[in-house]
């Protein structure tokens, strides 16, 4: 049985009357990539910052690597690594100097040159941080999050703002960390990223986890069967299939298939009303569909739009 490295029981965080995190339970297992998804204000950043020992919980019990968060935060800090959101290291220090700077904050530290190899930046080690591209900067950030040879690594939106190529390069680095046995807690706005990288994920909304499991489990549990897309169906198709919960997206109509007769009903209705369309496609729901269904937030190009 996999050992839990983080156990949360009844975690609550309040800001005055606002309940940011509402009585949450969670277990994160050793060696897994665990993603937390959610719209802004859902409570994911607050949850992660409590685990990173930056914020204090209002109530609840948290155990990280066998230490109670309330009493053992010093020891926890020594054993976790964090890449903050929109992190930029010192502009005028080189890659190597930056990694060495942050390594200097710890008694126990990883070898700087090994970290540079880990993120594949050997040829950039003496380049100033400000002269690196966005993707390379994030790789430096990941190396910095590893300077104390941590058992748990928190990566807060590590690919935000990167082009698809650079994003995939960062994914490879994250896969490399996982292969080395690190537990990775990832927060991201990219559904594809969460689906591709995560062993398990949680969707958070209004301070609560509303879905939890592996990507396929979450899709299975909350996706509600296959999705039928009528390409080019337009407004006419949408009106004709309104009773079945049809939704219009651009000029396409989407309907969730609940049982095997639904597809027959759709085709019959289109024929009966003499509605023209280009094509009918059946597909499994994606994480994006699940997220949309559970939170009601819009996603464009795979990225959450608040």
């Amino acid at each position: 049985m996999e050992r839990n490295v983080i156990t949360i029981r009844g975690l609550t965080k309040k800001y005055g009357n606002l309940v940011a995190v509402n009585n949450v339970d969670l277990e994160i297992r050793a060696g897994e990539v665990f993603s937390i998804l959610g719209p802004n204000g859902a409570g994911k950043t607050t949850t992660v910052e409590i685990l990173e020992c930056i914020r204090k919980a209002t109530s609840g019990e948290i155990e990280i690597l066998g230490h109670d968060l309330m009493t053992g935060s010093k020891e926890i800090r020594r054993q976790i690594g964090v890449l903050p959101q929109e992190f930029n290291a010192f502009d005028l220090l080189t890659v190597r100097e930056n990694i060495k700077f942050f390594a200097g904050m710890y008694d126990r530290r990883a070898d700087v040159d090994e970290l540079i190899s880990l993120v594949d930046l050997e040829d950039k080690r003496d380049v100033c941080f400000k002269n690196l591209s966005g993707g390379l900067k994030q790789r430096v950030g990941i190396a910095i999050s590893m300077v104390n040879d941590p058992r748990i690594v928190f990566l807060d939106e590590p690919t935000t703002g990167l082009d698809p190529g650079a994003r995939r390069e960062v994914w490879e680095v994250i896969r490399g960390l996982r292969a080395k046995g690190r537990t990775i807690i990832l927060t991201t706005h990219y559904m594809e990223e969460a689906e591709v990288l995560s062993d398990r994920l949680a969707i958070m909304n209004n301070g609560k986890f509303i879905a939890l499991g592996s990507p396929s489990e979450v899709i299975e549990d909350h996706g509600g069967g296959q999705i039928c897309t009528i390409l080019g169906g337009g407004l006419a198709a949408m009106h004709s299939l309104k009773d079945m919960g049809a939704e219009l997206k651009d000029n396409d109509v989407m309907i969730q298939i609940r049982d095997k007769d639904d597809l027959v009903r759709i085709v019959t209705s289109l024929d009966h009303n003499d509605i023209s369309y280009d094509e009918i496609i059946l597909r499994r729901p994606s994480l994006e569909d699940v997220f949309l269904k559970l939170t009601g937030h819009t996603i464009e190009g795979g990225e959450l739009i608040d």
Binding site: G81, V82, L83, F102
Partner: peptide
């Protein structure tokens, strides 16, 4: 924010 997560 990064330094706040270290022993510094």
């Amino acid at each position: 924010r990064k330094l706040a997560t270290t022993p510094l």
